[in-house]
Design a protein around this nucleic acid. Structure first.
Length: 813
RNA sequence: GCCGGAGUGGCGGAAUCGGUAGACGCGCCGGACUCAAAAUCCGGUGAGGGCAACCUCGUGUGGGUUCGAGUCCCACCUCCGGCACCA
């Protein structure tokens, strides 16, 4: 092929295809295990195999790939794997609606997406691919479950749980979102159901999960997790209830104990039935029943008037021996703290409202500033001097918290305590397409874990998919009936499956050795690559996946599997790509952008570069159908730098070319380091425009060197184009195995600078001057400027500021 | 209510340390090429005024600090996200 024809046949899709094949043939992206290089584990969140890659996948993965490529060129051995989060509801729904088996549906989607991933031109190490619905994978979910069970971190409990009536399954607390409590997956409002479910004791790690000191994660994620865990410091205080056992309360304000004038227990609190007096029984029963029937949304509606009912019982305030009435009221939640509170109406808004309504005494025990000694007209939740508190009067409330706690502790009726909002992770799902929970129920021995050598418990292939609200496996007699591993007697298997967040909690470990069968991962590979150095993915998983995987790693550490505390050292959250109408992309809105069409038309480099160019990666933004044309134009222009003939001659300023090249390398290096793909591309565009302007006016060797550097700087962002240009320049395969260019800092500073001249801070002139111009000379030049003179004439120069090599500011009267 | 984040041309955005506001791209306007169009190339493009040189205004609003503020401080407005009877 002659150069002339090559020039005319610039066709990005053709050249991209050619290189994708060459890369595959030559195993270019096989992970480099050279122990002399520092390791870099780069990870992008694994996709759900929905059938096709959408623009969101491209937006998540291609910048992540560019960053991994950049690291590779910088001398790291980079591990950049990909896999499929293959269990989950859409597969099962496809089975119900269309009669396709979830396995078939999932695997054919995966096959399709593998091809689409190849088109991305990413450097994924496909040898380490994982598919989570493969028994080879989920076997280890079960293995972890058993380990958790043995450590007491997996337990079964019957309790009111969140149930999605559309997906027909229970959910973890994290998977119920918004004030109106909707299912995170499908948006349906959840309801409460009383069910026996398996939970993981993530709350045991609440305190440690609040420690982010070992990771460099976005503040946003750390804040979301911190708020979600919701740590409160205070005290637990026991209140005697005559005729019953003492009831403990949790309070963050032990300093207000003397102001507790009533006591409230949640309607579902086990004490309610015991303490209610005969006279109050009917009323209490009616109230409790009513509360139970109310929807969670109504019940937690903050604007609703407080309701409650007197139980007839009294509790003894341990501070002053006063008997205070015990109410059952639904503003107290069973699941938080101890499910009971001491009510201090003067210093808590909710208690205040309740006391007003039921005519209960409101006793001020913390004096607000300028307090007149009268009853408060609204709750005062702030700090102040303690009053009406016997020996504690005059103590500032900030000190009173500890003083009262110590006093109670001495008397054995209280102690300092910490409470978390975080709940244990409910992992049971009443669905088919997930990992079977490896538990056998024996009438003799109760819940028995399946012995390790019997794992995996295979998901039976021939299940019936009836959306009955029961686990489909329950209907499968062959699966359900088994024998007890301890006594061999007839027993039944657990028929629920695991939350799919289980799969993604440890997948980064499995990538290292996807076929290893002595453990979840090969420890030798682990020592070589762990932990993940750079993780990228969406913010939507801040309190789900990202919390669960941290929890998992801590448990794995405690099991001796790893010797570090955090799974991913650095995290970057990309934003969301919206439709052209700036709305979320959805089929119903008709604003979905199809990446396949774009790849066919403009090529993958254009698509990936455009997604990176659209704005800061963590910001996302609306799609712009015309914008991609600008990128396609840029790539064509860049390509044309090498594709034409090269008439040469030294006419342009050679120093300028070297200076600009050095600046480009510095800019792109710093930008890619910090995930600023948009400005890196802007610099590459600017440089391309400059190069086209001087093309043919530069001496051969210098031009070749400048171009070589440019192509390398382009390589992580537009890998196919860079490879093609590299080859056209006659350089040896492959551009992606080259060392990232460096720059000479001394070249960067120009000898001539544009000096800014201001008068009273206003720009008046620009003067070309030597970079090292002296202050005196700069000021003199400024004063003699034609443009400056009119603004200075007839006035006094009171002061002048000089910023070396940048500006002169004359301050005049 | 509490906790985050953000407001810059017609649009996406840049200005990373307090020092030329609007890089780069889209769009638009003008020109070259063409029978014509597309593509491509060249030039222009914050607003207002002026023939022009230039001048004035301009980064959500109002104040402040400073020789100088998109950037720092105070108060506020708007939008987005999260949490919310959590004791």
């Amino acid at each position: 092929m002659s150069e002339a024809t090559e020039k005319q046949t610039y066709n990005p899709t053709v050249l991209e295809h050619r290189w994708q094949e060459r890369w595959a043939e030559t195993d270019l992206y096989k992970t480099d295990d050279d122990p002399n290089k520092p390791k870099h584990y780069a990870l992008t969140m694994l996709p759900y195999p929905s059938g096709d890659l959408h623009v969101g996948h491209w937006y998540a993965m291609t910048p992540s790939d560019s960053r991994a490529r950049f690291m590779r060129m910088n001398g790291y051995r980079v591990f950049f794997p990909i896999g499929f989060d293959a269990f989950g509801l859409p597969a099962e729904n496809a089975a119900i609606n269309r009669g396709i088996h979830p396995y078939k549906w999932t695997m054919s989607n995966i096959e399709n997406m593998r091809g689409q991933l190849r088109q991305m031109g990413a450097m994924f190490d496909t040898d380490s691919e994982i598919v989570t619905c493969d028994p080879e994978y989920y076997r280890w979910n079960q293995w972890f479950f058993v380990k958790f069970f043995e450590k007491g971190l997996a337990y079964r409990k019957e309790a009111p749980v969140d149930w999605c009536p559309k997906d027909n399954t229970t959910l973890a607390r994290e998977q119920v979102v918004g004030v109106d409590r909707r299912c995170e997956r499908c948006g349906t409002p959840v309801i409460k159901k009383n069910l026996a479910q398996w939970l993981f004791k993530i709350t045991d790690y609440a305190e440690e999960l609040l420690d982010f000191s070992k990771i460099d994660w976005p503040e946003r994620v750390k804040t979301l997790q911190t708020n979600w865990i919701g740590r409160s410091e205070g005290a637990e205080i026991a209140f005697e209830v005559p005729g019953y056992e003492p009831i403990e309360v949790f309070t963050t304000r032990p300093d207000t104990l003397f102001g507790a004038t009533f006591f409230v227990v949640a309607p579902e609190h086990p004490a309610v039935e015991q303490i209610t007096t005969l006279e109050q029984a009917d009323e209490v029963r009616a109230y409790v029943e009513h509360a139970g029937r109310m929807s969670e949304i109504d019940r937690t509606d903050v604007t609703r008037e407080k309701t409650g009912v007197f139980t007839g019982a009294y509790a003894v305030n341990p501070a002053n021996g006063e008997e205070i009435p015990v109410y059952a009221a639904d503003y107290v939640l069973l699941g938080y703290g101890t499910g009971a509170i001491m009510a201090v109406p003067a210093h808590d808004e909710r208690d205040f409202e309740f006391a007003r309504k039921y005519g209960i005494e409101i006793r001020t025990v913390i004096a607000p500033r300028d307090w007149n000694g009268k009853e408060l007209t609204e709750a005062y939740p702030g700090e102040g001097m303690m009053v009406n508190s016997d020996g504690f009067d005059g103590t500032p409330s900030t000190q009173g918290k500890k003083a009262i706690t110590d006093w109670l502790e001495e008397r054995g009726v209280g102690r300092a305590a910490v409470t978390y909002r975080l709940r244990d992770w409910l992992i049971s799902r009443q669905r088919y397409w997930g990992t079977p929970i490896p538990i056998i129920y024996c009438p003799e021995h109760g819940a028995v874990p399946v012995p390790e050598e019997d794992l995996p418990v295979l998901l039976p292939e021939d299940a019936e998919f009836m959306p009955t609200g029961e686990s489909p496996l329950k209907l499968d007699e062959g699966f359900r009936n088994t024998t007890c591993p301890i006594c061999g007697g007839p027993a039944e298997r657990e028929t629920d499956t695991m939350d799919t967040f289980m799969d993604s909690s440890w997948y980064q470990y499995r990538y290292l050795s996807p076929h290893y069968d002595e453990g979840p991962f090969d420890p030798e590979r682990g020592r070589e690559w762990l932990p993940v150095d750079q993780y990228t993915g969406g913010i939507e998983h801040a309190v789900m996946h990202l919390l669960y995987t941290r929890f998992f790693t801590k448990v794995m550490r405690d099991l001796g599997l790893v010797d570090f505390d955090e799974p991913m050292l650095k995290l970057f959250n990309q934003g969301i790509i919206l439709g052209e109408d700036a709305e979320k992309m959805s089929k119903s809105r008709g604003n979905v952008v199809n990446p396949q069409e774009l790849v066919d038309r403009y090529g993958s480099d254009a698509l990936r570069c455009f997604l990176m160019f659209i704005g800061p990666w963590n910001q996302g933004g609306p799609w712009d159908g015309r914008g991609i044309e600008g990128i396609a134009r840029f790539l064509r222009r860049a390509y044309s730098l090498v594709a034409g003939g090269d008439p040469s001659g030294a006419q342009s300023d050679p120093k300028e070319l070297d200076r600009r090249t050095a600046r480009l390398v510095k800019k792109v290096t710093e930008d890619l380091e910090a995930f600023r793909f948009n400005t890196a591309l802007a610099a590459l565009m600017e440089h391309t425009n400059y190069l086209l302007g001087v093309k043919g006016k530069v001496e051969d060797d210098q031009w070749a060197e400048a171009l070589r550097t440019f192509v390398l700087a382009l390589a992580p962002l537009a890998p196919h184009h860079a490879e093609e240009m590299w080859a056209l320049m006659g350089l040896p395969y492959s551009a992606h195995e080259q060392v990232w260019p460096t720059w000479d800092e001394s070249l960067i500073e120009a000898e001539e600078v544009t000096l800014i001249v201001q008068v009273n801070g206003k720009l008046r002139d620009r003067i070309e001057a030597p970079a090292d111009i002296s202050e005196d000379l700069a000021k003199e030049l400024a004063l003699t400027s034609e443009k400056v003179r009119p603004h200075v004439e007839g006035r006094q120069i009171r002061k002048s500021i000089y910023v070396p090599g940048r500006l002169v500011n004359l301050v005049v009267t």
